[in-house]
Design a protein around this nucleic acid. Sequence first.
DNA 1: TAGTGGTCTAGACCACCTC
DNA 2: AGGTGGTCTAGACCACTAC
Lengths: 255, 255
Amino acid sequence: MNKQPKYRQVADALRREIDNGTYPPGSRLPSEAELSTRFDASRNTVRAGLNLLVTQGLVASSQGLGYQVTKHEVFKLNASRFENLTFPQNGDAYSTDVTAAGRRPSQTFRVELQPAPKHVAERLEVAADSTTVLRFCHRFVDDVPWSTQATHYPEWLVAKAPRLTEPGDIAEGTTRYLADLGVTQVGYFDEITTRMPTPEEARLLEVGAGVPVLLWTRTGYSDERPIRCTVTTFRGDLNQMNYEIGDLSAREVSE
Amino acid sequence: MNKQPKYRQVADALRREIDNGTYPPGSRLPSEAELSTRFDASRNTVRAGLNLLVTQGLVASSQGLGYQVTKHEVFKLNASRFENLTFPQNGDAYSTDVTAAGRRPSQTFRVELQPAPKHVAERLEVAADSTTVLRFCHRFVDDVPWSTQATHYPEWLVAKAPRLTEPGDIAEGTTRYLADLGVTQVGYFDEITTRMPTPEEARLLEVGAGVPVLLWTRTGYSDERPIRCTVTTFRGDLNQMNYEIGDLSAREVSE
DNA sequence: TAGTGGTCTAGACCACCTC
DNA sequence: AGGTGGTCTAGACCACTAC
């Protein structure tokens, strides 16, 4: 018989009760002291069990308040439509989608000149230390941190499109602005990965332990070369990415 | 001044040393006892710090061996080509890609009849309790668990395509087989999310704490209706998904 | 057998939230 | 003030790996 350690028994028992609805999303778990009595374990052992659930993203704890079962409402992003090739737009698609979902979007924005980080330089096909324009966006939905988005433009493009260095939004959208200058995005290459957040990411996105981030790197191409590289970091518990490929005329649009 | 708790100082110090190459991927960290001396902290405090790094996926521990810095080689899956509409193929694309990378693929496979789980029923647009054929695949690369893949086919399709219930592989590929019967997949809808693994997923994929899973749900459509729903569960530390959209003729294929 | 991490306890004190 | 979780300690014993 595989005897589980006590703290795992605690975690498993609580997980079952969360799954079967004893503790529904948003409700509070019993206090450590109560659980300690119930499982005949020391407070530290109960804490070890609870910590497992926290790192698995099932519950979150806060000092003075207790442990609360997490609840998510995921936001669905259609990445194959997000910046439609025929209707190029900037971050506007984000505001539009969020508003359409009845939520309130907000963001902070800044522009910097930066030497290209290695992975960006590779994707933009420029030298690793060459200058790029970084347009950085920190996005919130109903004041909850949602994602960060960092778009790098190569130096040669800035010469053609000086407004890229303007500190504010470009009203008509950067994609539109660039297209008007003869630099049209005709394709994208998307890379999607996941991992646990770095301390910096955890701070910006205000994620606790147990919530991974979804990393989305989009490299945009003209018919000649890469013209931008956008790295978006999503809270993994609040976001889903969708792609449409081929003919989907048979699809019910129920969502 | 924001004084960090001691176990965070331990974690931060070790993280810096991992980042700057003091402890390169694959190397071992000092023992808990040594770290305890170095940081003038109790063994439990050091363990709390190390546990942070473990849940962040930076290091892995094993009894009797110590803590080892994790190393990853990510496998890149081109999801927009994986089952090319013009060259339909089954799991073969997986073996082909893996072999091309100089790795050795293997898999276990089984077929079951199952009532449609809720999320599958929605996507296949069938009743929630209707029967589906489940073709399930557990994939390994060089004997490391890589992903699980569960494809559900609706009951009405099985009537047309009885070989779907055959327990073995379909030699020419299921997509090909279905196309020959007049059921052609003309489009896909892909959904990508991430979260921490359930205990069951952790067991199948042999992931330790701190490694999220990447969930990929692909619903395939004929020109009339959905014909299959495939849910793939990847180890997030070993996999990346790529999509190509639009015209990428300018892209250097360096990988 | 020696050294490593894994489990567990009992108790102390602190920080935060609610009343 | 009282209850909650957060931090930290000191020590015990167990399980696994290497030699």
